[in-house]
Structures are given as C-alpha cells and as structure tokens.
Nucleic acid binder design. Structure first.
Lengths: 68, 68
DNA sequence: TATAAAATTATCGTTTTTCGATAATTTATT
DNA sequence: AATAAATTATCGAAAAACGATAATTTTATA
C-alpha cells in the first residue's frame, strides 16, 4: 500500500512512547499500533488531528505517498 | 475542524477540473466535492493514494493541520 | 538469563463513515 | 438567458475505525 504511516520519526523527536502517545491522543494502544504498523486502511481526521496536536507536526510529517 | 483538505492548489497546478479529477481517481463528483469542501470526517488511504497519484503530489500538499 | 514491561496481534461487537447512485440545487461560464 | 459544472442532499450498503479484552511477541531491565 503506497500510503505509508510513519510515526516513529516524530515520536523519537518528541521522545514519546507508544503507550504515552496512545493515552494522549485518546485511543487504545492496540489501535495506535495498527496505525503505526500500516495496518489501517483509513484514518479519521479527528484522530489525525490529535496526533498532529500531540506530536506538534503536520500530516505530511506522518503520511507519505510512495508510488508503486 | 483543524485538519484541512485543500485540493485547489494542486488542482490548479495540474490544471484539472473537479469532474476530471473525480473520474481519474474513480469516485463520484459528489463524493469528491465532500472532500474538497471539508465535509469528510475521514479518508481511506486507497482514496488518498489515488489523489496523490493523479495530482502527483504528497499527502502533505493536500492535508494541513491548523491548530485551534 | 530470567523477569517484567511494553508493544503488537487477534477477536468480537458497535458505531461511525465512506462511497455509490441519484436527484435537486446552486454556482459559474459562455 | 441558457448551459455546464460543482455542490448539496438522501438513502442504503459496505467498509473500516475504534473500544474492550486477551494472547502473543518483542524489548528492556535487573
């Protein structure tokens, strides 16, 4: 799937763990993991918004389109 | 809603109309319009992928997080 | 290396939302 | 004014998020 979710870079920059991020954005660690490991097929803007807010970043820092 | 979908800039760059874009990404003009006018509450990565492919751009060119 | 903690994976059920189809309405263009 | 394009509105069906929970795997730590 050519849309890649990459949270690792920003999480490292903000020095935040998966568990803490999950808590702060208000979703379960299980569901955050699905996002992190590119298992999700869609995302709610409300969730993307919370991620951007907590990580202090833009969608483009997290989502990448890779052709092919 | 602090996640903004802005297709207008890239559409202008590529000189493509809503109707043509809808056709090329394979969704109805009605649903593309919902995206364009920030009425959508989520997006499938398969749709985002097609948009990026047709407009030859990255998610960050289209999605913006505006706080507050 | 053993143990604990953290992260990932897996189910299940519910709720939310996309998306198609279609028609009506509004807006833009000529 | 007439035509085309875009937006809005319904409705229903299919897809997927998400919570809750438990099991498994991975990572960290003593």
């Amino acid at each position: 799937m050519p849309i890649i979710v990459n949270l690792d870079v920003m999480m490292a920059k903000r020095k935040i763990s998966s568990g803490e991020l999950a808590e702060k954005i208000g979703i379960t660690p299980a569901n955050l993991s699905i996002l992190k490991t590119n298992k999700a097929k869609a995302i709610r803007f409300s969730t993307l918004e919370k991620i951007c807010e907590v990580l202090q970043c833009q969608p483009g820092d997290i989502l990448e389109y890779k052709e092919d």
